[in-house]
Nucleic acid binder design. Structure first.
Lengths: 342, 342
DNA sequence: CTGAAAGCGCTTACAG
DNA sequence: CTGAAAGCGCTTACAG
């Protein structure tokens, strides 16, 4: 009757001459099974190579042992690190990971979220782009614990864990000002990206506070290397050149660096340069890049831990937004310039 | 009766005043439903925000719309790229992705494979380290289509897709010899890693063929940067220094480069250097690194496509091992040296 | 075109 | 400590 090769709990029960209920109890470690019976069941299961069918188990137990991760993309350092942190915790707590990328398409994101019903016990959601109000509420399966990662939601009732982009950006400006720079340009990230907006806000606030006589000097960018390169070319060509450039992320800082190299503008001698993220490349370029380290793996790990704790406790997740601090990494690109003057 | 917030197919049936069978048919696009009934069901489902329960659906339909990916790790460029290629195909074909890393622990790998029963429709498996004979057969859920990715199995009956490491390594040696190098050292990868062994084999064979009078010059390594650095220091200290170094992967080539830089050995003027993989860093270091590009995303995408085709066709996967060719990328680190002699 | 019913493979009160 | 039975939420022959 059973399809060849597929052995079910019934087969084990028949072989061990007990009921399926007893097999289930024995295999799940319940204590209301006689020890000799348990041994027999375990041995039989092993002999038949029985493996419980996950869908069946999920359906009746209402647990999937799986966490869903819905994110914009799987490409690149950031997501790789994030997944790594999530994975470490998942393994330690014996959870599976269902990943789903939506590549910036809100419809796909909504679909991905809805499709999680019956697949996962909880959800980690990244939505770095501005969301329609009610988007999550509309699409999240009811009753599924969620932790938002690096995702800003107005008036949200969701638990969230985010990088302290604002604090990191102000700290970077403080560092540059401390190194003697007075004209600090900023290369922005995408306008609809929350991380980018927070970093810009930090730049502006710190600048207004530390150098109240200076005008902010902002160049457009989109987090990609190419946009940093463009910004770099514009800076090189500008008449009143800044003495420091703070890029909203490392990739743009690198693009900017190429533009400087091309133009023979020396870093840090002619101009200081700083990024944000501390991608591995930052230590390898010449000069090495000053940046603000974001421990992405820790971000993922902490979010996962918080989510699993809620799942295990069958608890409501408290709403507060927790924050992950960043760390200033000073490298060659912002070394105090050997100036003629000042 | 139903837990608050969770709406099932029964609720939709009741609201639409049809049977659950009809709701199921309408929602799944079967054609044996009157058009007006279908409309009513669809509207009702939407109004109630009904979302099918994946586990229940899987249990009765025997389809999960999910592919499992079991790999040694989720860390780093290789897996990031691989997953990216897999994900692109998964999205296009509306499949979910269940990822599982086993971090080199065979027991965990076996567990991960077994736990896939009832969770996935097919499996992509990476096992770059030498496996016990029968390991996969022992642990793979019966009847689940599998494609092995970059995994060598003796006498395997599984479909597989692998990088042509051997061909890539011979091509690299040909390039170095063509550039005039006569004493070419090789930094090995881990002894139990199949990619590494194939690259070593390619190095040896090409050397024997092109420079039959030369002895191979092999240094130990483990694919990590640090081991490349150690090898580089040994090369610098050696009395009869090679004129080219071929590292079994880029990370070791970079480590080697640091050792050379430290010692004041210039690349490519004093010694040529080449790696394997074409990681992003290879374009960014100075000098830029000659390497053998492996299109990892394509590897993942092709494996996924092959697997899904088999799942869709309900087909047995044919066993042949397919191969992905590599591409020689010549950069500064192997430019023809400006020698005094020769 | 539609519904009642069986069944997917488990878990878990309920009785004993 | 154990088993019979209900139930998880679907899909799908089977009848009509």
């Amino acid at each position: 009757m059973a399809r060849s090769g597929t052995v079910t709990i019934k087969d084990v029960a028949r072989e061990a001459e007990v009921s399926v209920a007893t097999v289930s109890r024995a295999l799940n470690g319940h204590d209301n099974v006689a020890e000799n019976v348990r041994q027999l069941v375990l041995a039989t299961a092993q002999r038949l190579r029985y493996q419980p069918h996950a869908a069946a188990r999920s359906l009746s137990s209402r647990r999937t042992q799986t966490i869903g991760v819905v994110l914009p993309d799987l490409y690149g350092e950031f997501f790789s690190e994030l997944i790594r942190g999530i994975d470490a915790v998942a393994r330690a707590r014996r959870q599976h990971l269902l990943v789903s990328s939506y590549h910036g398409h809100p419809e796909e994101q909504g679909e991905a979220l809805r499709a999680m019903r019956g697949r996962v016990d909880g959800l980690l959601v990244l939505s770095p782009y501005a969301d329609q109000p009610g988007f999550l509420t509309d699409n999240l399966p009811a009753g599924l614990p969620v932790v938002l990662v690096n995702t800003q939601l107005p008036d949200s009732d969701y638990a969230a864990l985010s990088v302290d982009n604002y604090g990191g950006a102000t700290a970077m400006v403080e560092h540059l000002v401390g190194a003697g720079h007075r004209r600090i340009a900023f290369i922005c990230g995408p306008k609809d990206n929350f991380d980018a907006r927070e970093r810009l806000r930090g730049y502006r606030d710190a600048l207004a506070r530390l150098l109240p006589d200076t005008q902010p000097l902002e160049l457009p960018g989109d987090f990609d290397e190419a946009s940093g390169y463009e910004a770099g070319k514009r800076i090189v060509a500008s008449k009143h050149r800044p003495d420091a450039v703070f890029a909203a992320n490392d990739m743009m800082a690198l693009g900017c660096l190429y533009a400087f190299n091309e133009a023979g503008v020396r870093v840090p001698d002619d101009i200081a340069l700083a990024g944000f993220d501390d991608i591995p490349l930052a230590r390898f370029v010449h000069p090495t890049l000053t940046t603000m380290r974001v421990n992405i793996a820790e971000l993922g790990g902490r979010a996962m831990t918080r989510l699993l704790d809620a799942v295990d406790a069958n608890d409501e997740l408290a709403a507060p937004v927790q924050t992950l601090t960043t760390e200033l990494i000073v490298r060659q690109s912002s070394e105090r310039p050997r100036r003629g003057s000042g």
